[in-house]
Design a protein around this nucleic acid. Structure first.
Lengths: 257, 257
DNA sequence: CTTTATAGTTCATAATTGCGAACCGAGTTC
DNA sequence: GAACTCGGTTCGCAATTATGAACTATAAAG
């Protein structure tokens, strides 16, 4: 790896994680780099608009708007999102819950878009944010769609060890595989308070023209609003929506899933 | 400037602009770099998740999802957007047109958020996208708010020369300054087909606690839907919305604007 | 099946970058 | 007001990176 390039990218990552303006010195400490080296890279990042000075505090830095621009261009080109949008809105109309669409990335799901006022979930989820696949409805929908224990194991092992977020979290691969078996039969995945005390989701996978799962759609709600018959209803809706999106993306197989 | 860092960032920019997967060779040509140098940097960008291989075509590269994550984190921290969102939705309810919120960046406005189904504007505008300030309602709202010809000149000169996008575009600084004078008196800015043949916008500036304009809100529509009395109506609404948002951000002065 | 073209990889050495130490400037403390 | 602190800047030599040329892999053409 090229050290200079790696350091440059590490600095960007650091700012993204930090969530607050930082000084050059903060970078030195966190990344264990000499001041003079940080100085040179920060200068370049400033020149290129990837960093800017914060107006509030003297000599503190933050990520430049330019990175927002680049970030948006990433998903504009992944056209699942644009194809899916009208379907997400329709699903939202139908169930009046927050709708998410996400893709797999390493052992996580990454939230790409939502239909609903942001913040109604208590601000837990940000677009661009991540969750481990094993404890997310979206993640389990995708994993179930692979229909292959080996693939599931491989994916999960790419990420950090499974850990309990709540009493309901599945923390071993056998438990997860059994749950995926049920998910496949049921047709939709369920997150029954596996990552937060009160959230409850149902989710279904989206396939592309090569019949591989490329993402998932979810209906996210709170536990108290989801008695069994409501779960069933939302499950049917989310399966339908995911299937319609899949068809738009060239999915052929008349769904045995 | 640090050449390695600059090249690394240039590669990211190139992918963002390109809008399609690229090969290492494409990079060599576009950025005039030797193959071996590109190779090293691409390797690092891949390792760090800033680039990934495209599944469709062998050995072509595209921007990694990780950059979407970073991009979103940029605006999460600029809290005007989160504060503004409910107001944008309310304004949308009131006027049933597409609502945008944008900030200034160099001589451009950058679109940060919208309320309305994406794509209703014919896909002209993407969140994260840019327009020159001089031919955008949002831009003119911000410029008018500075209330200082020197500042306006300085900002406009940061960008490329003013150029006509349509017959209505203002292409000289004196014309622009005169228009800003009218804008100030009227209270809202107008884009009367200055950048596209049929779009018509009204916009008003958003201020922060130091009473400086930090962005603007617009109602974007098409020319045929905007007779004078409708413009007046939307103008009043957008001024109100911008003011409410400004107040939330600590704006004090009871608005002489 | 040989040739040509295209894209990527490797490697030794020239060219650039990294870094310690010294320095600056603006606050704070004693 | 001397001494200390915290953040940033400068500079010359040691350490790392960049690169041309040679090489590999794969696909397309003859």
């Amino acid at each position: 790896m090229n050290r200079t390039a790696a350091r440059t990218l590490d600095i960007l990552n650091m700012f993204a994680k930090a969530g607050k303006p930082l000084t050059q010195n903060d970078i030195c400490q966190a990344l264990d780099m000499p001041k003079s080296s940080v100085h040179d890279l920060v200068y370049t990042l400033l020149e290129k608009g990837f960093l800017e000075y914060d107006n509030e505090q003297f000599k503190t830095l933050k990520l430049g708007l330019h990175l927002f621009e680049i970030g948006m261009s990433v998903i504009e080109k992944r056209n699942m999102v644009s194809v899916a949008r009208p379907y997400l809105l329709k699903l939202h109309e139908a169930v009046h819950e927050t709708i998410f669409i996400a893709v797999e990335d390493h052992a996580d799901v990454v939230y790409l878009d939502c239909a609903e006022e942001r913040g109604i979930m208590g601000g837990y989820i940000n677009l661009g944010g991540r969750r481990p696949m094993y404890c997310s409805g979206l993640g389990k929908a995708i994993l179930a769609a692979y229909n292959d224990p080996q693939t599931v194991k491989k994916i999960i092992k790419e990420g950090p060890p499974m850990k309990a977020h709540t009493a309901n979290t599945l923390t071993t691969i056998p438990k997860l595989l059994k749950e995926l078996e049920i998910t496949r039969k049921r047709g939709y995945a369920v997150d029954n308070r596996e990552v937060e005390m009160d959230t409850f989701c149902v989710a279904a996978p989206v396939f592309d023209r090569s019949n591989l799962p490329i993402g998932a759609v979810s209906v996210a709600s709170v536990f108290t609003r989801m008695p069994p018959d409501r779960v069933e209803e939302c499950g049917k809706e989310v399966i339908n929506t995911a299937l319609e999106i899949s068809k738009q993306l060239g999915y052929q197989k008349p769904t045995l899933y």
